[in-house]
């Protein structure tokens, strides 16, 4: 464990807590993409299959349980409890255009042609594009609530911090995973225009409103 990865995990944790707080306090899921949450649930389920078979540390197990539990709770809030506030018209990204290519790529490009490894690779590739329905929804509605902007900033920062973690681990431990790094770079790049909007607008107390 290193400071970059710890900050990354804390940023990821903060993003999930911000999202849950937004939903619970406002009792609304307006502006939140249910499809992205479903993709995240798929990512966590596929990645944490070894939750019960390989024990890394208490921290690792607790975080995995928390991530899986909260993402399914988020889906419950969106599609059941606060269903009336779910904006399905604007959450119209065709996720099959993500899942099929990502699934195919996981078969072709992986570290080892073994079921668990291919599923893990699928979860890494899927995570890099899982935020697209959410960003697409914001571009369609033309604006994002400030709390949603904080959620996205924390979520985008988590993988950017992981990139720093991989740089550190490469020099400190000789650890290197090309698949995770490339997917992490793609994932972070997808947030760049949002980061720009966040830093130039939200930090100055304005709302994010994309030119509709």
């Amino acid at each position: 464990m290193n400071i970059f990865r710890l900050c990354g995990d804390m940023s990821h944790l903060a993003a999930i807590i911000i999202l849950l707080l937004k939903m619970w306090k406002t009792r609304s899921v307006a502006g939140i993409s249910g499809k992205s949450q479903i993709l995240f649930a798929t990512v966590f389920t596929a990645r944490y299959l070894d939750l019960f078979t390989s024990f890394i540390s208490i921290y690792n197990t607790c975080m995995k349980v928390f991530f899986i539990g909260t993402v399914y709770f988020t889906i419950y809030l969106i599609y059941m409890k606060f269903k009336a506030t779910y904006d399905s018209n604007h959450d119209s990204f065709r996720v099959e255009f993500l899942i099929v290519p990502v699934g195919g790529l996981a078969f072709l490009v992986n570290h080892e042609f073994a079921p668990l490894e291919i599923i893990w690779t699928f979860s890494i590739y899927l995570e890099s594009v899982a935020i697209l329905p959410q960003l697409f929804m914001i571009s369609k509605t033309g604006e994002a609530e400030t709390i949603t902007s904080h959620y996205l900033f924390a979520l985008g920062s988590y993988r950017a911090l992981y990139l720093c973690n991989w740089i550190y681990r490469y020099y400190a431990e000789g650890f290197f995973d090309l698949i995770a790094v490339v997917a992490g770079v793609v994932q972070t790049i997808l947030y760049c225009d949002f980061f720009y909007l966040y830093i130039t607008k939200v930090m100055k107390g304005k709302k994010i409103s994309l030119p509709a």
Binding site: D9, H12, N60, H111, F176, D177, A180
Partner: peptide
């Protein structure tokens, strides 16, 4: 391409 390792990251 990658050092064989235990998947210890989230």
């Amino acid at each position: 391409l990658s050092v064989a390792y235990k998947k210890d990251e989230l």
